[in-house]
Design a protein around this nucleic acid. Sequence first.
DNA 1: CAGGATCCTATACGATACTG
DNA 2: CAGTATCGTATAGGATCCTG
Lengths: 103, 103
Amino acid sequence: MRAVQDSMDVLSGKWKIPIISSICYYNKRRFSDILNDIDGISNRMLSKELKELEINQLVSRTVLDTQPVTVEYKLTDHGLTLRTIINQLTEWGIEHRKVIIAK
Amino acid sequence: MRAVQDSMDVLSGKWKIPIISSICYYNKRRFSDILNDIDGISNRMLSKELKELEINQLVSRTVLDTQPVTVEYKLTDHGLTLRTIINQLTEWGIEHRKVIIAK
DNA sequence: CAGGATCCTATACGATACTG
DNA sequence: CAGTATCGTATAGGATCCTG
C-alpha cells in the first residue's frame, strides 16, 4: 500500500484534485479563474494549495508582466501524468452520483 | 469541476484509498489484515473509514461465524469500478517518488 | 478478533480584512 | 489581481483502554 499512500500524501485533501483538474482542462489558468472554477474554495486555500503543488512539482507558476500583475499556472510534465487519473475520477464521480441517488 | 469534487468527497482523506487498495488487492480482507496492510492506521480510524465506505456502497461487510468472530470486507461492484484508478494511483506514486528524489 | 468509548492534539478549512 | 495576515471553528486523527 506504500505507493498509493505516497500518492495520497500529495493529492489528498478537499482541493488538490479540483485545482489540478481546472488547470489541466484549460492548459493555462490564472489564479482568479481557478478561484471561479472551483465551487466553494477561498483565496487563502487556493494560494496555500497551489504552493504545495508547486513544491511537489506538479504545477508551475509564471508571473505575467501585466498591470495589475496576473499569475498563470500550468501543469508541469510531471503534473500532466495525472491527466488520465483526473479524467477517470471525473467519470467515476458522475457514475457514483447515479449509484447513490438510485439507492 | 463538480464531478471530480463528488469523487473526492467520498475518497479524500488519508486512509480511504489505501483501505480500498488493500481490499482490492486481496479480494477479501479481514479487519486485522487491513490494519496490518496499512502503515500507521489505528483501529479507530479503520473502523470509522470502513463504515463510511460501506455507507457509500464501496465496501460490503460480512460477519463470519467463527470463534472468535472475524469480519470480512469486500469491494462491491461499484467499489470495483475504482480498480483502474487505484492501479494508476499506485503506479503514479512510484513515479512521483522518483521525481521528488531526483530533485 | 473487531470494534466502541473516551480524551486529547493537530491541522484543515473558512471568513474577513488588508496590501503591493 | 494575487496574494498575506489574523483569527476562529470543525474535523481528522492518535493513544489508550475496554468488551462481547
